[in-house]
């Protein structure tokens, strides 16, 4: 259960990144997993080749990842903004594949070691064994989530972004620049990708294909209705728990397939997610 919740908190981070972009631009970012992967590779690169210690390397990874988001927004999404949404979505697929194959070409297909944020040796407190590295994952996820919440609730910029997501035309009328909000969404979401990658990578192995973990983010986002940030968080944790339980009670091979199954089942049975009421589409 606990390990499920820990994995789930990372899925929640991924789902939040996906939902942000979807709400802000209408695009489902199929390259998100590969951006996540690129973020971790930047960390590894900064550590191994630039000789940085872990904290500055993390900072570098998050910043460079944000710059990648900026580049995607300026070089690809802006020129395509008046195209039917099919085209930018296909573009995210292509960007993701290019990132993945680029990393595979330059960093090789073999796994790289990724440092844990804290030690992996468990402490025993009051009969419960606590692993610091697990706590670090959970803690990072919670802190990031709280920061996002504070940003969106209490700052002018966050409120502006939310407004632009909810009603782009209305936001434009009251003077919120549309270009600036979509740009900040891409940057923010790309930084989230790097953070999610850095916390999850030590648990799996870092290969160019680690981006497939984005499927879990998609499943989590769909569970939460693909439109609400809190929904994405709950969806992520729920998915982590479902995954852990099915791995425990059914078989560990099931663990891989369960997020695919959840994704299909939710879209077919509960298309607006677990929490949203069905909304009719406006003309």
């Amino acid at each position: 259960m606990l390990s499920g919740a820990i994995a789930g908190s990372v899925y929640a981070l991924i789902a939040v990144g996906l939902v942000l972009i979807h709400n802000g631009t209408g695009v489902v970012n199929f390259g998100f997993g590969d951006q996540l992967m690129a973020g971790v590779y930047i960390l590894v690169f900064a550590q191994q080749f630039l000789g940085l210690s872990l904290p500055p390397a993390i900072l570098v990874a998050v910043i460079v990842s944000g710059l990648i988001g900026l580049a995607i927004q300026y070089l690809v999404m802006t020129p395509l903004r008046n195209r039917p949404v099919l085209i930018p979505i296909v573009a995210t697929i292509a960007i993701g594949a290019a990132l993945r194959e680029g990393i595979r070409a330059f960093m090789g297909p073999n796994p790289w070691p990724v440092p844990f944020l804290l030690s992996t040796s468990p402490y025993r407190i009051a009969g419960i064994s606590i692993v610091p590295s697990d706590l670090a994952i959970l803690g990072t996820a919670i802190v990031v989530m709280l920061c996002l919440y504070a940003f969106f609730e209490f700052t002018k910029y966050g409120q502006a972004i939310l407004a632009a997501c909810a009603n782009p035309t209305g936001a434009l009328i009251v003077g919120i620049p549309a270009g600036a909000t979509t740009t900040s969404i891409w940057v923010l979401s790309s930084m989230l990708a790097a953070i999610a990658g850095i916390v999850i990578a030590p648990l799996t192995s870092l290969t160019p294909d680690i981006g497939l973990i984005a499927i879990k983010g998609f499943a989590a986002a769909v569970l939460g209705g693909f439109a609400s940030l809190p929904g994405a968080v709950v969806g992520g944790i729920l998915l982590g728990i479902i995954e852990a339980l099915s791995g425990y009670y059914v078989s560990s091979a099931m663990k891989d397939i369960v997020s695919y199954a959840v994704l299909v089942a939710v879209i077919i049975l509960l298309p607006s997610g677990l929490f949203n009421r069905a909304t009719a589409r406006k003309v």
């Binding site: 979505i89 998609f218 499943a219 695919y260 299909v264 077919i268």
Partner: peptide, 14 residues
């Protein structure tokens, strides 16, 4: 439409 992209992605994995 874009739900189809998600469902087909999952279907491919399955």
């Amino acid at each position: 439409g874009h739900y189809l992209a998600l469902v087909t992605l999952a279907f491919m994995g399955i």
